[in-house]
Design a protein around this nucleic acid. Structure first.
Lengths: 230, 230
DNA sequence: ACAAAAGTGTTCGCTTTACACCCATGT
DNA sequence: ACATGGGTGTAAAGCGAACACTTTTGT
């Protein structure tokens, strides 16, 4: 088949992390190309015989060493024809979440450096990557309200206060501890463990665990997970 | 820049229409290619110097003569590597809505035929287009619950019963007329006109109009448009 | 007058909100 | 004993759900 088309297909990953009550984004410093040395989202060109989702996972691995437990397609950026100065490139972007403590950011051969940046301190980025992050952040905020995805940013076992602070930080508003706890627990997908965590002074907190089996069951039953806050 | 990549980028449009209390999808019959004569979604390859959104609009115009008032990006299909048997093609799909009565489906030079099909009577389709429609339908159903997009399927001025039936049909469940009307009117984006429509017997219905200026204002204020039904 | 569709209010129950004190631990 | 964070209940308000009769027109 002869189709005269010279558009390249790339994938990019916006990976959110949460550390010390700060929302962070994973960035790499480019080693080659027009934007050499500039910071950018991890990503790269898709191979001819590779799924789009495989491609993001591969690029993430190659450039940062990170393997995600949550990753979904975000949006395809292709209306700005000159977003890459070299040639026409469209970017199928993906949106992921991890607990940075579970990851080792390895200095790879494909990127000069890989680092977590707090969302308020993102440096100047290559391409239109800043716009992409903005879209991803909106998606993240929206999703927090109707899907229990926040857990992907936390440790396997976590105290309730971690979850509260995560919501407070990302949504950037106050929440009522009592109402929040009641609401989340009412869904039934949190499991109480018998471990506790003591953080210096104060009463030690029970640790909870997200039970994804129960969650999937509830999801199948069509339960709504909308969270409204006081 | 030398990148060895041979992936083609296409756009496809899922256009929903609503006629005689039936949800419909706009399809074309292919004139060329491996799937010649088969029905498929309107769409085609993106030009090198063309925005993705321009490309869908152009293809729709070329193949069906239709120009949409509502069109948004749906999803990019590129995990099935062999979705097009000729070569690797990814499809950036868009999701649109029109009132079919406002459109003239023109027999174009680019497609052999263009027709509305009721959603329950979609024929065998080329490529993975049936899957794409399934995704689009889910999006449509979900959106109806939190964004007032249903109006795009109706005439400019419409009786309340049309809107009720549209929700009933698409969401496939009963809704309470009184609660529905109260809820929708409470948002304030519907304008009462002084026209009425009489449909044979029965009391003539006031016609309403969607006021998009008010809607955009409310949207900016962060109003939630969630609709729950009895 | 009867059939057909449009228009309209009220009550009940549940969910959300607002709000403050006691508990367990470390220093 | 005091400082620090964790854990918990209740009352009021607001929203969603359930529900049936009247009005206007055509035949």
């Amino acid at each position: 088949m002869k189709i005269k088309q010279n558009i390249k297909v790339a994938v990019d990953a916006i990976v959110f992390g949460y550390q010390e009550t700060s929302l962070q984004v994973l960035l790499i410093q480019q080693k080659y190309g027009a934007f050499k040395n500039q910071w950018a989202l991890p990503g790269g060109f898709v191979k001819d015989n590779e799924q789009l989702s495989e491609a993001v996972e591969r690029e993430l691995k190659e450039e940062t060493g990170v393997k995600l437990k949550y990753l979904e397609q975000l949006y395809t950026f292709g209306d700005n024809i000159n977003r890459d100065p070299r040639t026409r490139v469209i970017s199928v972007s993906y949106f992921g979440m991890v607990n940075p403590k579970n990851m080792i950011l390895k200095a790879t051969t494909d990127a000069q450096d890989a680092k977590w940046f707090p969302i308020e301190k993102i440096p100047k980025l290559a391409y239109d990557h800043k716009d992409i992050i903005k879209v991803a952040l909106n998606r993240l905020k929206a999703k927090l309200n109707y899907q229990p995805i926040g857990f992907n940013l936390l440790s396997d076992k976590f105290p309730f206060s971690d979850l509260e602070n995560l919501y407070r930080t990302i949504l950037d508003r106050e929440i009522d501890r009592r109402n929040f706890r009641k609401k989340i627990l009412s869904f039934g997908f949190l499991e109480e463990t018998d471990e506790k965590r003591s953080i210096g002074s104060g009463r030690p907190a029970k640790l909870f665990k997200f039970n994804s089996k129960i969650y999937r069951q509830l999801e199948k039953e069509g339960i709504s997970f909308e969270i409204k806050f006081a």
